[in-house]
Every structure is written in C-alpha cells, then in structure tokens.
C-alpha cells in the first residue's frame, strides 16, 4: 500500500497495521481508536487512525492493558496534520543578519546562547567598523 495514501477501508487499514479488522473494531468500541472519518457507505480511515493503532500496539508492548490505556490523559492519542506551534525569538544583529532562538529552551541554555550571540554581534559590528575605517 502506498505510504502517501490518505484514506483506507477498514480491511486496508487492518493490513497496513498488521492486525485483524475485528481487532480494530474492538479498539474503536473501547474508545482507543476513533471511528471512521466518513460514516455509512464507504467508511474510510486516515493516517491518524493508523497512528492511533500503532500507539495502542506500542503501549501493549510496554505492558499496558486496554483498560489502562483508556485511563491515560491523552487517550485516544490525536495525530493532527498541523504540527504543534512553537515560539521563536528573532534577534536582528545587523541589517543583513538575523538569528532565531527558540523561546522555550532552558534558562541556562538561553543565557549561553545570548552570550554567544552577544559575542557574535560584537564581532560582526567590529568587523563592519574595521571595513568602514579601511575604506576611509
């Protein structure tokens, strides 16, 4: 089955996941996997369903029972196409140089990065100054 396929029937999904269709129906009935994206005739399942099934199988291999999984806070695991947002800060060091730094890094790391940036900024400022002096 092509990896880029976006929707599957239950039987195709079962083949992709390597488990029986009945097992997937059982997971859906237990609320561990979402129901089909399109109900009724031609019910389909997407990549999110496959990820949910893989999560269930991975948790089983860690020794969790289905009942224990149902009690987890992230149950059922959601797998959206849109990634989680991340906060970044932009330092424009010069008109032609900008550096992006993630905002949620540890404070000690942030201090290190800022110290390095400070040095870097001084260095390119000095270099720029030297170049201007040389031209004069």
């Amino acid at each position: 089955m092509p990896e880029n396929k976006q929707s599957w029937t239950l039987l195709e999904l079962a083949e992709e996941a390597g488990i029986s269709a009945r097992t997937i129906r059982f997971y859906i009935s237990r609320g561990l996997v979402d129901g089909p994206e399109v109900a009724g005739r031609g019910a389909t399942y997407g990549r999110g369903h496959l990820e949910q099934i893989r999560t269930v199988l991975a948790r089983q291999s860690q020794g969790l029972t289905l009942a224990e999984m149902a009690r987890l806070p992230d149950h059922p695991p959601r797998h959206s196409a849109l990634p989680q947002p991340e906060a970044w800060v932009c330092y424009t060091l010069e008109g032609d140089v900008a550096v992006w730094v993630r905002q949620d890094i540890a404070p000690w790391r942030n201090r290190e990065v800022l110290r390095a940036l400070d040095e870097f900024a001084l260095k390119i400022k000095r270099k720029k100054q030297e170049d201007e002096d040389h031209e004069k």
Binding site: L10, F26, I28, P36, A39, A43
Partner: peptide, 11 residues
C-alpha cells in the same frame, strides 16, 4: 443489508 458504520464489538 447495506454497508455502514462498523458494528460495536462486544465480548
């Protein structure tokens, strides 16, 4: 009979 939502599995 017609295709539809999968049945709810009860053991």
């Amino acid at each position: 009979d017609r295709p539809g939502e999968p049945p709810v599995t009860q053991v």
